[in-house]
Simulated assay, not measured.
Amino acid sequence: KENLLNKYGTILANGEYYSEIKNPNKRFFTMLGTLVGGRICVARAGLGGAKFALTVAIKHALKRRQFNDSVKIQEDLLMDYPSHQLRLTPLVASAYVYHFTLDKMMSLYCDESQPDKRKIETQVAGLKSIITWYANDTIQECREACGGKGYLIENRIADLKGDVDIFTTFEGDNNVLLQLAAKGVLSDFKAEFNSAGFSTVLKLLSSQLSDKLSTINPMYSNKTDKDHLYNPKFHVHALEYRTRRLTYTLAMRIRGYIKKGIPSYQAFLKVQTHLMTLGKAYSAELAYKSFLEHTNTITDPDYKTLFEKIGTLHALYEIRKDASWYLEQGYLGGTKSKAIRQRVERLCTELRPHLNTLIDGFGIPDHLMTAPIAN
């Protein structure tokens, strides 16, 4: 008995179970909350691998010169090619966004004044998924960006691929965690999917209608000026709209199945892919908003301008990745979608002079940068 792991519940002298947390559901989620710290650490470890790979790939590209048609002109640096900028620069921007997001999550998790960890469990479940997937994709892109040398053991990227790959499964399979995150979003809306929850569904419907009214306007769907596309209010609105729209349609689908007499368990199985899409959308919105919070605390005008540009690139890159969904919903018109693609490419070029500073900002000690192509 004295060796029980009984922080949240114990056995009394008379053999009865006792817990300070009276509500069984709250007690269950409090115990599950102990997994949150591990998920944050796994996400941070994956992100660390991505940062190292990006540092190797970019330092290599800032020195490695490619062939040029004229023998009289010095060969171009790899990093001066727009295609190379486009494949690596958005990944650097995302690394910064995820770094400060995980810092915030760790701070919230360690806040002892907030013992109920249910909300942060939802947040971290989704973030762990998208960040570890991001880490794997980034390391692979960096490996390819370094050509054959990226495959050599001495340059460490190959080992990183082996080390980081497992993080998509550690502390919970990513596909399962996305569903956990989505169910947490649904519980935030208190959608019970029964007669008592009808008013909540109507509330969701009203928010959906207000979104529709503000976005079906062709002027908005095809607004392409720089001030609009670079405005964080547009980025937040786009990411929030996706989360709310997916939440609304998911709630209505589940409600429809249950009204037909399908058990709730089977109803959730029928919308499983929808759940995962919502989990990704929610996590992308959370990450960007967390980065914005940090950016707003920066006082140095030069640093703030740089971080705003990083945030803009990340947001537009995220919206661009989901362009097909936004086009289907009528949120984006073809003209605006094309303009976003062009702005992403332009931002990559604008950030080219800052890339060395940005990867140095990862803070990787010199004695650990042992990859020959990075030196």
Rank of each mutant, 00 (worst) to 15 (best):
D188S: 09
Q208Y: 13
A238C: 07
A238F: 04
L205C: 12
S207M: 12
T224E: 08
K226D: 05
T243M: 14
K233S: 12
S210W: 11
S221N: 06
E240K: 15
F198D: 15
L204I: 07
T215M: 07
S210L: 12
T200Y: 07
K226N: 01
T215F: 10
T200N: 10
L186R: 03
S195D: 11
S199D: 12
T224H: 03
D211W: 08
M219L: 15
P218G: 00
H235I: 07
L229K: 00
Y220C: 12
K226M: 00
Q208I: 08
R242M: 07
F193P: 00
Q208M: 13
V236E: 09
F193S: 05
Y230M: 12
D227I: 10
P218M: 02
N194I: 05
T200A: 10
S195I: 13
A191D: 02
L205S: 15
L186T: 02
E192Y: 09
S207W: 09
I216R: 12
E240L: 11
H228R: 10
N231E: 02
D227Q: 12
L205I: 09
M219N: 14
I216Y: 10
P232Q: 04
S214Y: 11
V236F: 15
S206Y: 14
T200G: 08
L204T: 07
P218K: 02
G184H: 02
S187L: 05
E240A: 15
D227Y: 10
N222Y: 03
Y220W: 14
N194V: 02
K226P: 00
A238W: 06
D211A: 05
L204C: 09
F234H: 08
N231R: 07
F234K: 02
V201N: 05
S214F: 12
D188R: 14
F193D: 05
L186W: 01
D225A: 04
A238T: 09
D188P: 00
D225K: 01
K212G: 01
P232S: 05
V201A: 10
S206T: 12
F234D: 01
